[in-house]
Design a protein around this nucleic acid. Sequence first.
DNA 1: ACTTGCCTATCTATACATAGGTAGTTATCA
DNA 2: TGATAACTACCTATGTATAGATAGGCAAGT
Lengths: 190, 190
Amino acid sequence: MTNNDTATQLLDTAQLLIQKRGYNAFSYKHLATTVGVRTSSIHYHFQTKADLGKALMDRYLAELEQALDNIDRKGRTNKAKLKQFISLYRETEDDGVVCLCGSLATDYETLPVALQRAVSTYLRRCEQWVAEKIDEGVGEGELALSGSSTDAAATLVASLQGGLILSRARGGPPVLDNVQRTFLAALNAS
Amino acid sequence: MTNNDTATQLLDTAQLLIQKRGYNAFSYKHLATTVGVRTSSIHYHFQTKADLGKALMDRYLAELEQALDNIDRKGRTNKAKLKQFISLYRETEDDGVVCLCGSLATDYETLPVALQRAVSTYLRRCEQWVAEKIDEGVGEGELALSGSSTDAAATLVASLQGGLILSRARGGPPVLDNVQRTFLAALNAS
DNA sequence: ACTTGCCTATCTATACATAGGTAGTTATCA
DNA sequence: TGATAACTACCTATGTATAGATAGGCAAGT
């Protein structure tokens, strides 16, 4: 399908542009020239910029669920699962971009409501999943934690998103390596 | 001086707009109508948007140094100083905005070089200061740390910035409260 | 014939920026 | 002291580029 091809290409490119430049610095014109079509063609596939954004987040959320599923099925220990989760973001850092969701979260106030909701959902899902793994790990005596799992989960998600955002500006070795070490140390699980 | 007044008002308002909406979603028009002048008047005070951004970051950096100085002079223990540092961001979270620097960091790729440099400087300065306090605290036996102070400092700054950014989208109780508890727990210093 | 997937052409709104004017203030010095 | 030059802090008007969006056409597939 040419349809599928172009639509997917539009999604892929738009996502990258948003991750690189932010929602408000990315435009249909920019996207069009990058993909090699006219802006009107983008409007054909995604009537408005808000629709495109929503489609992007829907896909991103589905991919997250898939990734979490994968980790849950393949990971042996909870520590390994959490490491896998972190490495999801660590790969993003290597790409020199931020999480789609973190990018949108910064522009939160300027987003259409549907997008705002999708961003919230994504973030809460991440925190919930992380807290779950920590709880399981602690329950099984695999991990130790001096605070609450909720605190640790919220902090991890914040530091992953923040780490990605700061990484480009700060330069130097990957910030998420520091984050991972700190997080695992707090769980007595280097 | 009317000069001082308008210029300062422009800076204040511009900063708030950027912290609320991001660098690229804030415009001279928006700023002008908010302050009650014409866009050309903004150009009079700050020839270009890049100049305005630079002036903003210069001021922000100066304020940071002042705040750190204040904390260093007034804080008794290193733990207290670190708590004070965190509360700087915690106040920002209450205002429902993000750190100016965190906002700019997200749009990093689209910023004029002078602004990029200012953002880097700010972030590195924060990390450096935090690492210093941790080192001192550990040296004096006041704090204990299982990892490196560099890791902890980078992680704290990332989670503060990330926490602010996620806070609006996530809703619920302040994220930075979770961050503070996690951070202090990791230092064996609740 | 109808749908799909793209195109050209065009619209309105806004972005950042500049040119040039003006009222009010301050400095200079015969 | 009071004429004039220079400066300050705005203004109106305008320009060029880009934003997101729409209308309508057309070729290819079914």
